[in-house]
């Protein structure tokens, strides 16, 4: 017994090291699977507060640019509104009667990363603002990512610049769809894989979201085709996509919630139960 005690005392540094090192590795491996890193993420109270303090100072530097982006978006929306006004003569001014499956809310990015292989963003809204995990995040120019962790006042977003991300996307012209991934080389370029060889692909074509999931509605902008190659087995195409969004410079974002999500998920679960 004494021998064992002496052994522990003599090697206490090594044992402490092994214990803490293995614990850190365990935390790291947990983050490799989506939705599992419950403890260590920047949506917690301390880091959330410090990041929002930082963002309230640094956001002044980009006010001018942000205003221009908002103005551009206003213009675009006004133009769209005018075109609807032409079509519908007796339209209803009360927005409560306009039916839409998707509900939009806005938030501010308080921390952004784009230089790692698994990038995350932190935003300043959380459960208190009725956000949930698996909601889509977009800007006026294109998609940003999906909410993956959430606390009372903050949430983290798994960016499309993350090797765990796979988002359904399609060619705007021809409805052929594939998965959007990132090869970690350049934060302004992502890759679209599994596009069939037959699909007509031209450099400069627009890529939009596919609408095959409950997260993003169909037709949200992603980017344009920069170049493409056939894969080794010659069955599909590998496309490099230039993002419309500048992922290194995000401030105001919109969160999309699908009102029918629960209904769709329950329905799909019922199908699985029958099997």
């Amino acid at each position: 017994m004494q021998q064992i005690l002496y052994f522990f005392i003599r090697n206490k540094n090594f044992l402490l090291f092994t214990l803490l090192f293995l614990f850190s590795i365990f935390l790291t491996i947990q983050t490799h699977s989506y939705h599992k890193n419950k403890f260590i993420n920047s949506s917690n109270y301390i880091s959330g507060t410090i990041y929002s303090m930082k963002s309230s100072i640094t956001s002044y530097f980009s006010l001018k640019k942000e205003n221009i982006i908002l103005l551009e978006e206003n213009n675009r929306i006004k133009r769209k509104l005018e075109s609807y006004r032409d079509k519908i003569t007796n339209y209803n001014i009360d927005t409560a009667f306009i039916y839409s499956k998707y509900y939009f809310s806005h938030a501010k990015v308080i921390n952004n990363s784009y230089s790692k292989t698994k990038n995350k963003l932190t935003i300043n809204k959380g459960i208190n603002d009725s956000l949930k995990t698996d909601m889509g995040v977009v800007t006026s120019k294109g998609i940003v990512g999906i909410i993956d962790n959430i606390s009372r006042k903050y949430a983290t977003v798994q960016s499309i610049l993350n090797t765990n991300s796979q988002i359904n996307a399609k060619l705007k012209n021809s409805k052929h769809f594939g998965s959007l991934i990132w090869n970690t080389v350049d934060p302004s370029i992502v890759q679209l894989i599994d596009i069939p060889r037959l699909a007509p692909v031209k450099i400069g074509d627009t890529i939009v979201t596919g609408g095959k999931s409950t997260i993003f509605p169909e037709g949200i902008l992603i980017g344009e085709i920069k170049d493409f190659t056939l894969t080794q087995d010659k069955n599909s195409k590998y496309l490099n996509i230039k993002l419309f969004n500048d992922m290194t410079n995000l401030e105001h974002i919109h969160i999309i919630s699908n009102i029918d999500t629960n209904e769709i998920i329950n329905l799909e679960k019922e199908n699985e139960d029958v099997k």
Binding site: F21, F23, T28, T31, I40, I50, S113, K118, T122
Partner: peptide, 17 residues
């Protein structure tokens, strides 16, 4: 540092080492 940079335990592991 990991708390702030959403990186699991990579900084903790390297620092302990």
């Amino acid at each position: 540092i990991d708390f702030f940079s959403d990186s699991g335990g990579i900084h903790a592991a390297a620092s302990v080492f």
